[in-house]
Structure formats: structure tokens, C-alpha cells
Design a protein around this nucleic acid. Structure first.
Lengths: 143, 143
DNA sequence: CAATGATATATAGCTTGCTATGCAAACTGG
DNA sequence: CCAGTTTGCATAGCAAGCTATATATCATTG
């Protein structure tokens, strides 16, 4: 039997993630943000001054990916890298006032994007959907 | 209330898609394939000789993205671009023997990746999951 | 304490996305 | 028929992923 992409979870996941990212990007572009920057800000709004290694752990991306994202965020005036007095290898990542001010509008934009995607889902379907995605993630994580 | 990434469909979709892509990439790397190349091959195994514009329609990526993917596939000996005698603008994309030979091992690899992700899902959960993803995709597509 | 190993970050190089442009070929309405 | 629009493709430039390597600092252990 042929491999049908419409029935492939991986294919659908890819397409869905691209649409989420595209929609979010459109909404936060006026704020001067890109999706990975927003994701990183989520962690820093929650706790400022984290080390790069801790951001890598919390966001589950490769270290090199995070290093590059942080470089772009520094360029764009969203973060500062400050030396860590206790450990000459690491740097604490601190938010600028500009980044702090973006918290409300950016999270509002992200909520709106999720709402667009799940507009016709019932509350139960939303819970089910999130739970199934978490399980698929956990299964691939293990492997 | 804080925006919690663990409860965000978009965040989970991104993470899940990255894990699918990474797992698939590992499995098809020995075949000399990358994920977007595999996706493109799916369409061409189904129907050889399509125009680039038709591939764009079927795979729902931007035209520039497809043009670049095809350039890499041509470089890697997977496809040939042949002039279309009926329309001087378009070119028919044809599979090489090498690409044709990859159909079985590559689709087997993709199925294995899907199976890893959904290993602990019941048949009903799998159907539900695919249906919910399709609905989220359709909702974002409309908007 | 010196050698070895582990950890934190940076950098190079690649793929896959995207938007924005440019250009040539084909089509169409006056 | 031809001016203007549409269509098909390529290219430039950027973001964000990844792997693989390099380097510096810290930790451990013999």
C-alpha cells in the first residue's frame, strides 16, 4: 500500500507546526519578535537571569540553536549577557526593559494564535489534543 | 495568569514536529535523504513528472522553498528538471532510478518513526489524533 | 598539584522554512 | 494585435533547526 501523507502523524505535525509558527510570526512581527525569540522570552519572563545551559534544558533545543537565538536577541536589544561571577564559563541572560514590556502584548498574540487553531474544538477536545501531543512527545523523547 | 508553554498547542506542536523531523532524519540519513526531500519524493512516487507549481500545491509549501529543495535534490541525483514542450515557463520534475529505488526503504523508515511516536496510542486514539490535527490545520488555513 | 574529564559556550556548515523581488513566458480583453 | 495581467520559476536574504568541532573553565582524582 502507498504511504499516504494525509494519514501520517509526522507529516501532519510538520504542517501544523508550520502554520502555528507562521500565524504567530505574523502576530508578533509588529512587536519586533520572531517565534524562537518569543519562546525564549517565555522562559525569561518566568525567571530572569538564567544561564544559557538552563534555557537549553527548559526549552529543549540544542545548545548551538540557543546560542544563535540569543545572539539575535542581543542584537535586537532584547537581552544582555552578563558574566557569572561564580563560573567563568557561563553567562547570565538578563532581559532588557524593552523585553519586559513586551510580555503582555506578546502573550496575548500567542493566545490568539492558539485560539484561531482550536476555535472549533470543545474544551474536552482541547484537553485531549494537548494530552495526545504530550504523549507523542514523551514517546519520541524516550527513544 | 502566566502563559504556560506546556499548555500551549502551538508550543507543543513545534516540539512534536521537531522530534518527528529529527527521528525521521536519523532513519533516512543512511539513504542519503533529508526530510523535505522525502516529503517531495512522496508526491513524485505517487505521480512522476509533476511541475514545480503542482508540487507546491500538493505539499503546501512556498514556491521558493520548493525551488530550493528541488535544487538540492537535483544536486543529489534524485530528480531531473526537464523542459515542458507545451509551456516554456514550466519544467517537469522527473525521478532518477536512484530515487525510484528509495521508495520502499524510505517509506518503511517513515512508518517506523510514526510508530515510535504513537506506540502507546490505541487505534481509536490514533484516529482521534489525526482528525484533531487535520481540524487545527484547516482552521489555520482558512484564517 | 597535575592530568584527565566534564561542562558552558561559540562557531562553522548544512537544511528547511519564510518574504520579497525579478524576469520571462503565456494569456486576455479592447 | 498588443498592453497589461497572470503564471512559473529563480534568487537574495533572513530565522531557526541540526550536527560536529573548538576552546576555555571548572571539577576530580591519583
Amino acid at each position: 500500500m502507498a504511504f499516504q501523507k494525509e494519514r501520517s502523524a509526522g507529516y501532519l505535525a510538520n504542517q501544523m507546526a508550520r502554520l502555528f509558527a507562521k500565524g504567530l510570526h505574523e502576530r508578533i512581527r509588529p512587536l519586533g519578535l520572531a517565534p524562537a525569540q518569543f519562546m525564549t522570552l517565555l522562559a525569561l519572563w518566568d525567571e530572569d537571569g538564567l544561564a544559557q545551559s538552563e534555557l537549553v534544558r527548559r526549552l529543549d533545543v540544542e545548545q548551538a540553536t540557543m546560542a544563535n537565538t540569543l545572539t539575535r536577541m542581543e542584537r535586537d536589544g532584547l537581552i544582555e549577557r552578563r558574566a557569572n561571577p561564580d563560573d567563568g564559563r557561563s553567562q547570565a541572560i538578563h532581559l532588557t526593559p524593552r523585553a519586559k514590556a513586551l510580555r503582555d502584548p506578546a502573550t496575548t498574540a500567542a493566545r490568539a494564535q492558539n485560539e484561531t487553531a482550536l476555535a472549533e474544538f470543545t474544551d474536552e477536545e482541547r484537553q485531549t489534543f494537548l494530552a495526545l501531543m504530550r504523549r507523542a512527545i514523551a514517546a519520541m523523547h524516550k527513544d
